[in-house]
Design a protein around this nucleic acid. Structure first.
Lengths: 235, 235
DNA sequence: TTAAAAAACTGATAAATATCAGCTTCTGCG
DNA sequence: CGCAGAAGCTGATATTTATCAGTTTTTTAA
């Protein structure tokens, strides 16, 4: 599953989306028996770094950023989770406090599942456990990839990569493959690419001038994905 | 387990060291039945990014860096694994190629365990599986931490952090807690901190002038860990 | 509806860090 | 032992990116 045959998009996505499919009907029913749904508006915090986890979250719809905040202000986005994905399970499994924070980057509907139910299913279903092991192992790939990009790529390259990755996350919402419109703030782009917000704006302007994308406020339309990939310098 | 009560060292170490202790004697015997030991000299590559895993590695003695190389040359170190730790299991579990490379940073004795044996034990021992889940979940903490440090900290801070982390890895080899001597090249320090080698040299000189450390070639003695922690600006 | 707040944007400047070129000192190997 | 190559080191310079101080526009909420 490689974007345009060149950009290894699988290196940028966790794989918790399909995990729940491994559960039998009964198991799934038990998992969600005590769930509680909650609507989060854009910007709402779901959990905060340092707090104690009481369960896990299943994103029914919407998108969520996982991020770490430095000495106040500047936030670095670690990962953007899409609908269908689980979040907050690391801290439950490692029996630690949350290592990062999570917030909705668009209006989202999210189910909370008490940790006891999650652990119980884990003990019950070996297949589920295996799939979770696989997903967690893949996350190493994703995060190692992120580390090397942030450490070694230039600002324009990192922004290009952030846009390519986001495009993929926004893809499934549109019916056709063409004209995928991202809806993301300059600040979140800055947080993903690890660059200053002002520079995101300047770089977006450049990309626009080069005909790579169009933008109207937070709506960004990527017109020339191939040139964007070239810009990202990724192989 | 917090260094001097201020630096959260547990945020910098994977926890595969004690995993094998969860195995019964029989299980352990089966795991290592087909192992083959190999000696790696400093600098020797253990596996390379992009190749297909055939098994996992147990570091009997020595230290190993896991790293990713950019468009030739510059390498970013993702993690330094110590004796007792397992490496190379992510790729086996996720059924992917290695996402990173591994090389010995000191002479090391390493056992290779065929992936079939590893998987077999995994299916056999639920406790082992649980502990592995826990370890993998904890790795998210470590890697997210690394991402935010590389993205948000200055070069002197990152170098200070690299030194603090390495000090902990070299600790157990010395009998006393005092006078821990690191043995690491400028290049590897540059790779860990994500800065240019020349700047590592300059910064080390500064730290030296400030009385924080002493160095003789690759041997680095941290004299004032408290000042180093202050320098790292970590909370 | 409108005032206030937040986000987007701009240009100028400062700071941090990389790069380059050359030199010196180690280190390992024939 | 000596030599070649690697690693360590230095100073000068270039480049990148952040920061600052505003202005304009958009969004939010009373």
């Amino acid at each position: 599953m490689s974007l345009s045959g060149i950009f290894p998009i699988d290196r940028w996505n966790f794989t918790t989306q399909s995990i729940l499919n491994t559960l039998s009907e009964e198991e799934y029913a038990e998992l969600v028996a005590n769930q509680s749904d909650q609507k989060y508006l854009k910007g709402d915090v779901i959990f905060r770094e340092g707090s104690v986890p009481a369960g896990i979250f299943l994103i029914r719809s919407g998108k969520v950023k996982k991020y770490k905040v430095d000495n106040l202000a500047k936030e670095q986005i670690i990962y953007v989770a899409n609908h269908g994905e689980l979040i907050g399970y690391h801290a439950v499994l490692s029996e630690e406090r949350y290592p990062d924070s999570a917030a909705a980057i668009e209006d989202s509907l999210i189910s909370f599942i008490p940790k006891e139910d999650f652990i119980s299913i884990l003990h019950r279903s070996p297949v589920f456990t295996q799939r979770l092991l696989k997903a967690l192992s893949h996350e190493f790939t994703v995060l190692a990839n992120t580390i090397s990009v942030i450490a070694q790529r230039t600002a324009p390259e990192r922004l290009a990569i952030a846009l390519i990755v986001l495009r993929e996350k926004y893809k499934d919402e549109e019916s056709g493959e063409k004209d995928i419109i991202l809806n993301v703030s300059r600040m979140d782009l800055a947080g993903m690419a690890g660059i200053a917000q002002e520079n995101v704006i300047r770089l977006l302007k450049e990309f626009k001038a080069e005909g790579i994308l169009e933008s109207d406020g937070r709506k960004i339309l990527i017109k020339d994905i191939k040139r964007l990939i070239k810009k990202s310098n990724y192989r």
